[in-house]
Every structure is written in C-alpha cells, then in structure tokens.
C-alpha cells in the first residue's frame, strides 16, 4: 500500500519538465489547480486534460506510474462520485430503492471525479519531476518575500529537508525494532483492536526514544557546523531562471487565459 503512493515520490529523468526551475513548477501546479476550479463544463475539463497530457508526454514519466498514484485514493474518488450521483436534485433519471439518480447528478458525478483525478495527477507530476530537495529550495525561495510578515520560510524549508533525510532512517529503525520485539515473542497481528494497539507500545516507545536521540545528536552536529539559522547563509546551488522557465511561464499564462476565456465566452 505505502509503495503505491506516488504523491511525493521522485521519478528520475532529464526531460525539459525535470529541468524547469522548481519555483516555476510549484507556481504552475498552483495555477493548474486554480484552472481546474475555473472549469465549469466538460470542454474546460477537456482543455485541462489536453494540457496535462502534453506536459506528461514531455516529462516522459510513464502514464502507468501516474495512474498507480490514484489507487490509494480510489475510495475518495468513488465516494465523491456516489455522493454527487445521488445528492444533486434535478430531473429524475432512475430510482434505486430510496435513492434517486438525476441527470444533473450524473453530470456532476463525472465532472467532479474528473476534476479530482486531474488534481491528483497534476500535483503528483510536480513531485515526480522535482527532487524533494529542489522542491524544498523552491518553497523556501517562494515564501521568502513573506518573511517580513512573520512566515518562517527558512525554518520550514530546513524542517522539510531534515524530514526528507530522516524518513528512511526512521523506517529502517522501525523495521529493526519490530524484528527485535518479534524475536522476544511479540505478536502484532492477533487479538482485538485494544490488544493490537497495546502491542504497539514495545515499538513506539523505543522509536520515540530513537527519534529524540537523533534530534539531539543532529542538533549538536548542526551547531558544530556553524548553523545559526538562515540569516548569514548562502547556497551552493543558487536558483537561476533560464529561457525555458520563461517559456513555461508564458505557456502557463496562455493556458490560464484560455480556461478563463472558455468559461466566460462559451
């Protein structure tokens, strides 16, 4: 199950999309999401599908990989679909038991499900084509103008960096502790919910202790390497916008304008 979540996973590549500035990609994703909410009919959705298909094709991330990301949220999509299908009042098409399906409901059900699917694929495209570290840098840079308003841009980015670094370490640690307790006869699979929840204590306590130890040691190591917040810091990979980034920006504006025009004019 955890393996299926493509949201947040990186698919290595050297495509034009991969090489775009992370800031542009973050903005593009936000614009795309906004555009999905601008769309109010299937023509709008069709334009959005076309735009996304184009970017996916350029990114060379296999479509199957994208679709796999939908699996874990399949239930949410289904729920949205069913809810719209039965809850929207209008011209009755069919009755099943106490539920009624209306024409408007059917339309909305497909429309909302399509919007949700595009939203998920659109945002996974961002993480699939952007290294987590660049994503962090992008967020830091985009948020930094808001620092004067009290937004801790650097601190947030540093927290994300450390989280990314230590997730694999903690997963490994969890696996080790689980095995060690199993060797002492612990049983995580049988019994009722309360028993099972209780059986997690021998894993959670050592895990928390490990996490605290890591935090303490890491803080000391960071201090020893002269870390003192974002104030005097420079970066090795300063981000620079290239011609392709501006091209992407123009395409993005055209796309959004098209979506708005479609809504107003048609």
């Amino acid at each position: 199950m955890i393996r299926d979540i493509t949201l947040g996973q990186y698919f290595p590549g050297k495509s034009w999309v991969h090489r775009l500035d992370p800031r542009i990609k973050i903005i593009a994703t936000l614009v795309y999401i906004a555009a999905l909410f601008v769309a109010h009919d299937f023509l709008g959705i069709l334009i959005a599908v076309g735009a996304l298909a184009m970017v996916i094709a350029i990114s060379r991330v296999p479509l199957s990989f994208m679709l796999r990301g939908l699996k874990p949220i399949f239930l949410i999509i289904l729920f949205t679909f069913v809810l719209n299908l039965f809850m929207i009042p209008g011209k009755v098409m069919a009755r099943i038991w106490i539920l009624t399906i209306t024409e408007e409901g059917l339309y909305m059900a497909f429309f909302m499900a399509a919007r949700l699917i595009l939203l998920i694929i659109g945002s996974s495209l961002l993480t699939l084509t952007t290294k987590p570290m660049s994503l962090t840098d992008g967020i830091e840079s985009l948020l930094s103008p808001f620092r004067k308003l009290g937004v801790p841009a650097h601190e947030l980015a540093m927290m994300m960096t450390i989280a990314l670094r230590f997730i694999p370490t903690l997963l490994e640690e969890t696996d080790k502790i689980m095995k060690a307790q199993q060797a002492r006869g612990a049983d995580f699979e049988s019994g009722n919910i309360i028993r099972r929840a209780k059986s997690l204590i021998p894993i959670l306590v050592p895990l928390f202790i490990s996490a605290f130890r890591i935090a303490q040691e890491l803080a000391m190591a960071m201090e020893a390497r002269c870390y003192r917040g974002g104030k005097y810091r420079t970066r090795m990979n300063a981000m620079k916008l290239e011609a392709r980034d501006f091209a992407a920006l123009i395409l993005m504006i055209l796309f959004l304008a098209g979506m708005i025009a479609e809504r107003i004019l048609l």
Partner: peptide
Amino acid sequence: VFQYPEYQ
C-alpha cells in the same frame, strides 16, 4: 539478540 539490543 540483535545488534545494539539496548534500543529495544
């Protein structure tokens, strides 16, 4: 007994 068993 695993490596670094005190962590359990």
